[in-house]
Design a protein around this nucleic acid. Sequence first.
DNA 1: CTACCTATTGTTATATTATATCATACTAGT
DNA 2: ACTAGTATGATATAATATAACAATAGGTAG
Lengths: 163, 163
Amino acid sequence: MSDHSPAFHDHNHDTCTHDVLHHAEELVRRDGIRLTPVRRRTLEILVSEHRAMGAYEVLDRLAADGFGNQPPVAYRALEFLVEHGLAHRINRLNAFAACMHPGEAHSPLFLICQACEAVAEAPSDPVRTAVEQAAAQHDFAVERVNIEVLGTCPACAGDAKEC
Amino acid sequence: MSDHSPAFHDHNHDTCTHDVLHHAEELVRRDGIRLTPVRRRTLEILVSEHRAMGAYEVLDRLAADGFGNQPPVAYRALEFLVEHGLAHRINRLNAFAACMHPGEAHSPLFLICQACEAVAEAPSDPVRTAVEQAAAQHDFAVERVNIEVLGTCPACAGDAKEC
DNA sequence: CTACCTATTGTTATATTATATCATACTAGT
DNA sequence: ACTAGTATGATATAATATAACAATAGGTAG
Ligand SMILES: [Zn+2]
Ligand SMILES: [Zn+2]
Ligand SMILES: [Zn+2]
Ligand SMILES: [Zn+2]
């Protein structure tokens, strides 16, 4: 059975939002992280879209909400979220996305649709294992793994066929 | 047995250089690609180091060799090499490295040492398979896969222990 | 409470990376 | 030589990211 990714299909997005914010609140209680207004709003902005957003796009929204309007405002909040596993940085796109598997320790594997820019985050345990083995052959000690897959999501593949 | 990566160890680097350039010449004959002076020199510059080089660093060297000294000169040559599989772009570092497995169709897997910046390119067939499977679960059609692993190379791990 | 310390935010300025555009020069086929 | 396609050079600017310092908020020891 296919594990359809929310990012690529209609779904109850309130659930996504709730889950992500709820996990963040848990970190506040559990680890004492400080989810200040800018940081919280930044996370909300990211989760409000199932795609990667550039720092300047996030900044525009923050500014519209009355926060600072200079780059460091966005970059600092984004860095904080990434550090605490609430968001990921997608290098390929110079962009950021809310983590959709918060809490579960994971090496993110991103499926990036080249047509619609949607980004799905897939669990990558078997991939991670394969990576560890490849690295071991080079006596390389793995710290972090980032996997970015470019291709076409099912929605866009469907659209293409209709033409 | 460990398949030590040249990038992380002493080795006869002339062989690397020769192999890479030799493969490029083959593409000239086989596919009719145009390996012009700037492009050839760019490839030589990349292969002369077993690490990722930024476009502006490449540009400086090209300029020193009498080629143009404006960004597009480097970016165009690098883009050409990437398109033809002679180099890879390493997003994490905003940098480029000569392909060390030219000819073999492959999804590159980069081992990036955070201490010395060396970059090794490992074959990634098993990883690729795992990625395909993960993507299939989301009905996602894979086009290109980029895997960037951050960690510590054996040389730097050794140095750390000595302290 | 107050003085102190630290983390956070705001602001200014600048660095780094990348591309758009147009002019010029080279190549290959006719 | 003429022409279409390709490649290079050069100018300008866009997009992304960080350094550095000032101002503010929050917690802690006395
Ligand atoms: Zn959702
Ligand atoms: Zn995640
Ligand atoms: Zn070598
Ligand atoms: Zn390669």
